[in-house]
Nucleic acid binder design. Structure first.
Lengths: 112, 112
DNA sequence: ATGATTGTGCGACAATCTTCGAATGATTGG
DNA sequence: CCAATCATTCGAAGATTGTCGCACAATCAT
C-alpha cells in the first residue's frame, strides 16, 4: 500500500527563472499548464490523452524538475497539480500573467 | 546617409507567448534584456562586450524576431531597445514580472 | 580613395531537445 | 500468485539550438 514511486521536487528557493520560462516556452507544456490551472489536480493522462506515455512522462518530468508542477503517485495513476502558490511566492504574478496571455485560439497564425 | 541595414520586426499581434518565453529562457538573453530595461536604448556591443560578434548577432536577432527588442542601424553601430510598450500591450505585466524575478545575484546555485 | 571598424551571413560542429518504441518496474484486481 | 494496467527508463533518431571562425558588406575617419 505504500507509495513506491517517489518524485523529487525543487525547493521554492531552487526554482530558477530561466528554467521555468523554458518549461513554459513549449506549446505542448504550456497547454498542459493551462489545463492544470483550469482543472486543479488531474490524472496525468488528462494532459495528453493521445500522446505516447513516454512522451507524456518526459514533459511532466521536465515541468516537475523545473518547479512548475507537483507530482504524486496514487496507485498506478500519476496525479499532477500546478505549484501555483510556490510559483506565486517565488515569482509573483508570473504564472497568472503567462496564462492570461496565452489561449490557444488567440495564437498568431503561422507566418506564411 | 541612408540606413542600409533594415530589420524586420513582428507586429504586436504577431508576438507569440511561447516564442517570447523561449527568448527569455536563455540566461544570456535574459541578462541582455535586463541591461536593456536598465539603460534604455544601447549600442549592441554593450549587451556582450566579450562575446564574438556573430554570437551577439545571433542572440539579438532571436530577440528581435520574437518581438522582444527593436533594432535599428545607426552608422556602423546597432542600436537596440526593449519593446516595452508593445510587450506590455500584448502581454500585460509579463516583462515586469520576469525582470522583477530575475537578478543574477539571486540565481540559485549550480546544482553540485 | 584607403584603411579601419562594425554588423551580418554562412558553414560547421557540439550540445541539447523532442519524439517514441521497447523493455522494465510498480500496482491493482481476480 | 498471475495477468492486466499504468508509469518510468533506456536507447535511438531527427530536429533545433548555441557557439564561433571566416569572408563580405557597409560605414566612417583621414
Amino acid at each position: 500500500m505504500a507509495a513506491s514511486r517517489v518524485y523529487q521536487h525543487p525547493d521554492i528557493s531552487e526554482i530558477a527563472m530561466p528554467r521555468v520560462l523554458f518549461a513554459l516556452s513549449e506549446p505542448l507544456r504550456l497547454t498542459m499548464v493551462r489545463i492544470l490551472a483550469d482543472r486543479g489536480e488531474v490524472d496525468s493522462i488528462e494532459l495528453g490523452p493521445d500522446l505516447p506515455r513516454s512522451t507524456l512522462t518526459h514533459h511532466t518530468s521536465l515541468l516537475r524538475e523545473s518547479g512548475v508542477v507537483f507530482v504524486r503517485a496514487e496507485g498506478r495513476k500519476c496525479m499532477i497539480r500546478l505549484r501555483r502558490d510556490d510559483l506565486q511566492a517565488r515569482f509573483p504574478g508570473l504564472i497568472d500573467t503567462v496564462l492570461a496571455g496565452y489561449t490557444e485560439s488567440e495564437q498568431p497564425k503561422e507566418q506564411a
